[in-house]
């Protein structure tokens, strides 16, 4: 059975989808990722889909699910590297990936996750200051 590797990079998890996904593989990725966020306490998930040529409604739903599921575990998900033709097709299909953060490439996606993490930490610090 194929498996999509999930890499850990500091407080984040990194997934690069290099193969065309069939439904079972996408569903396995969803549950593996949620498990991994729970195990590692990761604060962010980055999914690189730059090698993915097709995102249909099923795959779109999985991406949305992953974002919602990780969010309730206190980890943000960002999807990066979408090909222009995929973006055009998704919108025409009727899917706007609401609730899923996106970034142009891995670098910007990482920056976005880091920004969110820093912001969270700042807020936590501010709370501490207020008590003093």
């Amino acid at each position: 059975m194929d498996k999509i590797p999930i890499l850990r990079m500091g407080p984040f998890l990194l997934v690069t989808i290099q193969v065309d996904l069939y439904d079972r593989l996408a569903l396995n990725l969803e549950s593996d990722l949620v498990q991994k966020v729970h195990q590692t306490g990761a604060r962010g998930v980055l999914i690189d889909i730059s090698a993915v040529s097709i995102v249909d409604s099923f795959m779109g739903r999985i991406l949305g699910n992953i974002a919602s599921m990780t969010r309730v575990l206190d980890a943000e998900t960002v999807v990066v590297g979408m090909q222009p033709a995929v973006a055009i097709t998704l919108i025409e299909l009727g899917l706007s990936l609401k609730g899923v953060h996106t970034a142009l490439d891995v670098e910007r996606g990482m920056a976005l996750l880091q920004e969110k993490l820093d912001w969270d930490t700042d807020v936590a610090d501010d709370d501490g200051d207020n008590i003093e």
Partner: peptide
Amino acid sequence: QTKLITAASE
């Protein structure tokens, strides 16, 4: 191509 394959996939 992407539109066709996506429709086919659905």
